[in-house]
Design a binder for these strands. Structure first.
Lengths: 211, 211
DNA sequence: AGACAATTCGAACATTCGTTTTAAAAAGGC
DNA sequence: GCCTTTTTAAAACGAATGTTCGAATTGTCT
């Protein structure tokens, strides 16, 4: 039996993923965690701070591993630039495979990351602060891999990549009603599919568009 | 002064976009609209029905114009397949330029569409029902444009496109803190940038991936 | 053992929520 | 004119919310 603090975090993460953050009450969290209602405020002070901690616990290691992978690929590449596919992999693989990183939770947080983008503004900004240097590092490496492209192009394409990542993380269940159920596949296949799609998109910039 | 029903819809759309759906109360909507609290239940019956009507009012014309454009491009192509770029344009242009379609509202609903993906499941399913045949029609046309690709590939790439569309619709403000502010550009340039990115991604499928 | 801090518990706080009800007033069509 | 539809006003409903507080409990140290 974990301590109360992590049990709250786990329960909150699960319910946030399933029902959305705004629709999840503190009482449902404490019920899921099997702890007392007041313990949330004892350990976290407020509801908003709990939300922040839930994200912080996961995004920290995820972003750390992003930079780790980027570093690793950089050393493997030596003086030459990291292959574009590898840069993309370093960016999207950690959130896709993050589930077992901290606890034995199901893939709940993977969905939750997808939900991140639609939070109220204040929460958004706080979450974005956890991202800062990751973007900077990846843009720098993308610049080396695609030197002919402008920084503006790279920013836009990275933004597109975040969008693709978000729609994948939010899960298949959402679209299973309207998209085909055959979409289900293992995560490794999804990763390779995303890398190919995004790499092609990145390389498309600079072409003269045929209107 | 519009009638009460559309004033409620406009106010709800604005507040939903700004604060998120779950965080918006009926009382704040009636305050914004300058109407009585009870009028919401008089015209819409319940809160959930109001949410549905807000989306319905916009998604109806948007999806209709998607199919219109697809049809128009189809006739222009005659017997041959519609160019991939045109199929993509028919899919992403209507939501990008939808603002002036119904009312003189600011681009609030554009953001709201981006938020769609993170609603509770029941709302999700109801919203997805407004999408049904659109996906079917576009997959059919994509099949003609990219006959060598499997239907599974097309579904995945379309899903990726929805992700890119979502991240663009959710607005620049979210990322302005961590991404560069130079990202701002007019909507037409954004459209062309997206089309180029997505078309390249679509065409990448089937290539043997270099692991 | 006792003493002290950390933690957990049960209960209650004041607010806000969606919803309903009542009545009256305003608007519009026939 | 009258009759129906719409809008406003005010109040109240039960339920659920985030938060707070003091007492009880547990754990840890000497």
């Amino acid at each position: 039996m974990k301590d109360t603090k992590t049990r709250i975090l786990n329960a909150a993460e699960k319910l946030f993923s399933e029902q959305g953050i705004g629709a999840t009450s503190l009482r449902s969290i404490t019920a899921e965690a099997g702890v007392n209602l007041a313990s949330i405020h004892y350990h976290f002070g407020s509801r908003e701070n709990l939300i922040l901690r839930v994200f912080e616990r996961r995004l920290g290691p995820i972003n750390a591993e992003r930079l780790n992978l980027l570093n690793e690929f950089g050393q493997r590449a030596g003086n030459s630039a990291i292959p574009l596919e590898k840069i993309i992999e370093a960016f999207i693989k950690p959130p896709l495979f993050c589930e077992d990183a901290i606890d034995d939770l199901p893939a709940s947080f993977v969905q939750l990351i997808g939900r991140m983008h639609s939070e109220p503004k204040e929460t958004q900004h706080l979450l974005m602060s956890l991202f800062g240097d990751v973007i900077t590092s990846f843009i720098a490496e993308l610049k080396k891999a695609l030197p002919e492209q402008s920084e503006k192009d790279l920013f836009w394409n990275l933004k597109f990549s975040i969008g693709v990542l978000g729609i994948v993380l939010v899960g298949e269940e959402t679209f299973r009603q309207v998209l085909e159920p055959e979409l289900t596949q293992n995560r490794q296949a999804t990763l390779e599919r995303m890398i190919a799609f995004l790499a092609a998109g990145f390389r498309s910039s600079g072409d003269s568009p045929k209107s």
